[in-house]
């Protein structure tokens, strides 16, 4: 009976003293400082646990605890813990992203053949100044700025922090600039539009000193763009001496090679999976 009474008295004292409690705001915008009201009295230890933080400091229970804005930059769920002599109390609060002001802008590919429908993709991840994804829908303005043409733009609303568009490449080679804009963020990426596969690949042959000089006409794609220098053109010659092949890179728009010809020879040309015309020539023995 005596022990029951003792326990009851202890409980009453504890209630009267008031165990430490925390009252953080339910929701905070990233990058803002807050104060957390506490109850209780005496020395206590305050802990703040978040995505990128795990801090500990001594405080007085019953006072307001200030939390710096630097500690609350990353969005997510934070746990505030206050431990006093009578135990620990905790409270969770959410840090939400600030206003959108930053974009991670992914544009692919960085090189694209001309006249390729829906080949370019532009994806923008909407973020605040602290790299937090802004998940609520926001309008992102995408624009295409051709080298010598008028700007074309379209707006897309983000979903789950992402907005994206698909674009087709132009018929003319050259760089084009793609932009994405939100808040103060204006990101620009450059896509290089390059000639597509060679079209109407043709070769001609003329006599050099002792060999035949075989060269292509200027190598162009079907839209009339010059196939870039360095692109490999394969020449194949079959004559009495056997077969000969040479992989020659295009230089100044054409590919050329000197081939010795023994008797009658057939010369063919190809670039990648595209084949060109065939020549028949007759050389000296």
């Amino acid at each position: 009976m005596r022990s029951v009474l003792t326990a009851f008295i202890v409980c009453l004292f504890a209630l009267a003293a008031g165990a430490a409690e925390l009252h953080p705001p339910a929701q905070v915008t990233a990058g803002n400082s807050i104060t957390i009201a506490t109850s209780g009295s005496g020395d206590a230890t305050f802990y703040l646990i978040g995505q990128s933080v795990a801090s500990k400091r001594h405080v007085q229970a019953g006072t307001e605890i200030a939390v710096d804005s630097e500690q609350l930059e990353r969005a997510g769920i934070y746990t505030a813990i206050l431990c006093a002599s009578d135990g620990c109390a905790s409270a969770n609060f959410v840090v939400t992203p600030a206003a959108p002001n930053r974009l991670s802008f992914l544009v692919h590919p960085s090189r694209v053949p001309v006249d390729s429908p829906n080949r370019i993709s532009a994806v923008a991840f909407v973020q605040d100044n602290f790299h937090n994804f802004v998940l609520k829908s926001e309008a992102v303005k995408f624009s295409v700025l051709p080298k010598d043409g008028k700007e074309i733009s379209a707006t897309r609303n983000s979903e789950n922090g992402v907005a994206w568009v698909r674009l087709s490449s132009a018929k003319k080679e050259g760089p084009t600039r793609l932009g994405a804009e939100i808040g103060h963020a204006n990101e620009i990426r450059v896509v290089q539009q390059v000639a597509a596969d060679a079209c109407n690949l043709r070769i001609k042959a003329s006599r050099a000193k002792k060999d035949f000089l075989v060269e292509t006409d200027p190598v162009k794609d079907c839209s009339g763009n010059s196939v870039p220098d360095g692109t490999v053109v394969s020449f194949t010659k079959v004559d009495e001496a056997g077969k000969a092949t040479v992989d020659v890179p295009i230089k100044r728009g054409v590919a050329k090679v000197e081939l010795p010809v023994d008797g009658r020879a057939k010369i063919t040309v190809a670039s990648g999976v595209v084949t060109g015309n065939e020549l028949e020539v007759a050389g000296g023995q």
Binding site: G230, A241, G242, A244, T245, P249, K251
Partner: peptide, 12 residues
Amino acid sequence: SADPVIAIDQQK
């Protein structure tokens, strides 16, 4: 480099 260019002759 696009250099060197190597011709493969008299293949049989």
